[in-house]
Design a protein around this nucleic acid. Sequence first.
RNA 1: GGCGCAUUCGUCUAGGGGCCUAGGACGCCGCCCUCUCACGGCGGUAACACGGGUUCGAAUCCCGUAUGCGCUACCA
Length: 480
Amino acid sequence: MRVRFAPSPTGSLHVGGARTALFNWLAARHADGQFILRLEDTDRERSTPESEAEILRVLRWLGLDWDEGPFRQSERGEVYSEAIATLKAAGAVYAAWETPEELDAMRAQAHADKRAPVVRGRRDHAPEDIAGFEAEGRRPVWRFAVPLPGETVIDDMIRGAVTFDHAQIEDFVVARSDGSPTYNLAAAVDDMEMGITRVIRGEDHLSNTPKQMLVIRALGGEPPEYAHVPLILGTDRKRLSKRHGAASVEELEADGFLPQPVRNALVLLGWSYDDKTTTFTADELIERFDVARVSKSPAVFDLKKLEVMSGRYLRTMDPAAFADVLVDYLEAVGYFAGKDPGAPALARSTAPLVQRKISRLSEYERLAGWLYRPVEFEPEAWAELAGDVRTSIQCIGGGLGRLEVLAEFSVDNIKDALSDQLHIQGLTARQFLEPQRIALTGQTISTGIYESLALVGRDESVARYRAALARLAESWEGGN
RNA sequence: GGCGCAUUCGUCUAGGGGCCUAGGACGCCGCCCUCUCACGGCGGUAACACGGGUUCGAAUCCCGUAUGCGCUACCA
């Protein structure tokens, strides 16, 4: 089996495109076939090299390696010229001289008559008329002569038979007036020429398919199998786009998601293995994926679900591997810029403190940000302390007294000492420990208290406790 | 407007005539655990778009309606 992914490099890879790529890749790997990458860059206005590079980068990030390509349609001009010549020779296409204004008028009229807005060019111009057109510098487009009457049936792997009446298909343009091929010509020719046996693509291409089948047959080829997958929607049930938040894979990456859970979430958009399994390894996907099982109806992309999968994945990771991806991520997003040279090492040592608590790498800062700066109280955190200054001072002071004299500043010792102290003071763990957390971190949410204390060490811990106490004392006096 | 596709809990879905008083997962609600945030455990809430058929029997098949989406370019 030979499949292809054929994005147009006019932006970054969005979630829908990524899923299509994934489905194709899985189909190829499952059947031990080839996955071909082809850039459909015939739109010179919108295609950019940056976009192409980004798409390639993201595919690699997702782990979707291709066997052939990337091919660029912009470099295959001769192939299309030949195909167009063949079609001309076979009489399958004809020159059409209609001006844009005439075409608009035809379509407007069809709309007014409640008819299908199909364009059929005039094919009965007198030779002298044509000479006249040419004399004024006009060049014709070449339109495909859709056979009438007739119909084309797509035997879609997902939807079953879909029939299109030729009366509803216009004589679509195959070659522009400058001779360049249009999408429907180029895609058809490439699929044929590249020996593609199965086309898996978005449902938005369903109505193009009969046109491409017509071209392939006119060229003497046999169309591949088709599988049109439903579109992916945003939470407003509109086709997913930039305005739906993280709609591109690039953004998901920046938001701290790893490729494995992203893949897992994408594949489950429209496909399922059974009624229970929700996580798969890459190998399991390759073994189990079957495009015929893809659902017919569109799915809403739910970031929350991705987050859950991501969190689960992170938690099951080997701690060393987790530390690696965490540090790599922080490095990549520039987290260490302007920080102490020891910051990456610090991040690595704190990885175990956050692994169970975050669902995406970008949440690291929320929990561990305090480690990278001098004490700096979040307004809510300070408010919590200042709400009951006397108690806060008692708790922090009580904790300080124990920490200062601890023989070995280890997690276990800290825990024992503080637990003992809270009993002595007759407080609940929460009442007693919260002020400690705030004194140490300045945050209401942080890494675990005992681990955090042990990590920064006695000197730093004591210094932070004292600073908090001093500030509390000030506000106490100020308040009296 | 034309053509096409789709329609099961809020979301992703299982289901392909009797196994369905519709199953799972996420979310949500409650409880437990608990040093915050989380994690984890337990329990609960919640759906076959509507109307006709076909059939002994329909979420499953057919028709219609409604709604949504896609295409409707010398874009891809």
